[in-house]
């Protein structure tokens, strides 16, 4: 599956990276918490989020993500998109909510970049 297939499945808009739609996607990580994306996402994953601030792009770049998929119909501001262009991170936007987006992609064979976390973390 590549980004072009994802655009079709989710009826998504391509905001950045029209020329990068052949990029293959095998795994993904969905979260609105960038702290967790940084701690748990694996390289080469698609990051699915409802956050649109420019920090999402920098986080994706640090992690070598294959792209950003913004959910709930949000369109990031000009600044965020310019940064994505500069750092060469494809950005797609879909109107589906995070749950539906993840579920639809999973049904098409994309899996989580981690299945589950090793252990429960209880704070004393």
């Amino acid at each position: 599956m590549n980004l072009r297939d994802i655009v079709k499945i989710l009826d998504a808009k391509v905001l950045v990276g029209e020329d990068r739609l052949d990029t293959v996607v095998k795994t993904a990580f969905s979260a609105d918490l960038m702290s967790d994306v940084l701690a748990f996402a694996k390289p080469g994953s698609l990051i699915i989020t409802g956050l649109t601030i420019h920090q999402v792009v920098r986080t994706a770049s640090i992690l070598d993500a294959v792209g950003l998929l913004i959910v709930r119909g949000k369109i990031p501001g000009r600044e965020t998109l310019e940064l994505a262009r500069e750092l060469d991170i494809p950005v797609l936007s879909t109107r589906y909510i995070l749950f539906e987006t993840s579920g639809r992609l999973y049904a098409h064979g994309i899996v989580g970049c981690v299945e589950k976390i090793e252990k429960f973390n209880c704070r004393q």
Binding site: S35, A39, Q55, N121, R123
Partner: peptide
């Protein structure tokens, strides 16, 4: 160092950070 412990302000949390993972992630 404990996961989830944070003294982050709202500003930090609005950016999607401040969840109390940072130092632990650095260690990992």
């Amino acid at each position: 160092m404990q996961e989830g412990y944070s003294t982050a302000t709202d500003r930090i949390r609005e950016m999607g950070f401040g969840a109390g993972m940072g130092l632990l992630n650095i260690k990992n």
